[in-house]
Design a protein around this nucleic acid. Structure first.
Lengths: 232, 232
DNA sequence: TGTACATCAGTGAACGCGCGTTCACTGATGTAC
DNA sequence: TGTACATCAGTGAACGCGCGTTCACTGATGTAC
């Protein structure tokens, strides 16, 4: 018992320092962007020699990967919290809450947002470890839609029936969601549209086109809920 | 006369070489992404010594800027061509053609797409010279909407009237478009949603969620035309 | 048309830089008996 | 509880790299009279 306790003492220190490296790295990321993320600079700020970092991360890329995974986790946390805090509201209200939570996080952490929803860092595909937080996001969206259906707040008009080819294209996501195909298609469209709106704003394309980003975003999200999701 | 002809001879050579540098740079961009764009490597491939490039571009950043401007111009070309080739179709058909042209270009030039619609390169704001091609894009969208209205193919339901604050937020773009405010808002939403759909696909987020990207995109764009624009 | 000078493109060497990663090492902490 | 050994964190020097940019230069092309 004493042995395992002391053993975990070393491990606790290790975890602490790993955390510290990640925190410093995240700060660097926030300030200079992923491209400029330098192992040496991080090491300097942590107060160790650059080679010591290799005790914790086998390479610079692994450090970046860890940050990517953390960023996904952070969005998932925000979204889950927003969804949980709005269970008693109507579908459109919950949609507003969830989309606002993503946007707020994105504005607070633009570089991290860019890291996961902007241009992928060259030579990168999503690491395995992002599957779990991405799934959490998907679950929130699916639950939102399911609740909306069950409560009768979601009244999709079936006037634009899904062609067979589109239905087939959606196979993986349909299996995951277990909802009517047009609801899934609408949900996905609303979801990607939200990212379009956020990226467009965050990456500067609304500059000199729109004055009040908050009002604009809120309104467009309401429009998505109404027109695309079919809420109300 | 002879003088000005020979003077422009030198100038023609200069333009040719400038072009060659840009072409090589664009090829490098396509292969390795903007981060890895190196003045020295470009110079090597053009067949000159690195310092010679400074006769044409005052710095690496200016070279990148030129590529950004060109990329915007390329999208604008595609979009204008698609719009021009589809003047006789219905609004939804024209919308399909225009959105497909953006997506096709994006898939053919992913790094260039990422350069202008993905994460901005750190320390960059859109250079002045992008205003012109961006305007050309805006004009296409506005004309699309105007034609749709005039032909009665666009029947926006005024059930979701624009709150004053949103109307005010849209002031610059309303002045530019000179169309009913809700039409402008719908157009902008459809437009940014298109970018969301393209980025989501191109940046890998549809991976293992959707099987047939072509069918999926086409359908979602039809949905946008119908549900958001109010086409038909 | 011919000569003297000015402009410009391209060369080659050099600058200083910060980077990722490796490696042999020291010393502290944990483990086994 | 004490000793002998194993594990691990962190050090410091060194590697090779490619980069952007500057600068004095050569030689060709254009200009003015």
């Amino acid at each position: 018992m004493a042995t395992s306790a002391s053993k975990s003492a070393r491990e606790r220190v290790r975890e602490e320092i790993t955390r510290e490296i990640l925190d410093v790295a995240r700060a660097h990321l926030a300030e200079h962007g992923p491209v400029a993320l330098s192992l040496r600079a991080v090491a300097r700020d942590v107060g160790m020699v650059s080679s010591a970092v290799y005790r914790y991360f086998p390479s610079r890329d692994d450090l970046l990967t860890a940050l990517i995974v953390e960023a996904y986790g952070a969005v998932a946390d925000e979204v889950e919290a927003a969804a949980a805090a709005s269970t008693r509201r109507h579908l459109s209200g919950r949609w507003a809450a969830v989309t606002a939570s993503v946007r707020d996080w994105a504005r607070a952490h633009p570089h991290e947002y860019g890291l996961i929803y902007g241009t992928p860092v060259p030579g990168y595909q999503a690491p395995e470890a992002t599957i779990e937080p991405v799934n959490r996001l998907a679950v929130v969206l699916v639950e939102l839609l399911r609740d909306g259906l069950e409560r009768g707040e979601l009244t999709p008009e079936h006037d634009l029936a899904l062609p067979k080819r589109v239905h087939a294209a959606l196979a993986p996501v349909l299996e995951f969601a277990d909802l009517p195909d047009d609801v899934v298609a609408r949900g996905l469209l609303a979801w990607t549209s939200m990212f379009g709106a956020i990226s467009y704003e965050l990456f500067g394309h609304l500059h000199s086109a729109v004055l009040d980003y908050d009002a604009y975003f809120e309104h467009q999200m309401a429009r998505l809920a109404h027109d695309v999701l079919g809420a109300r």
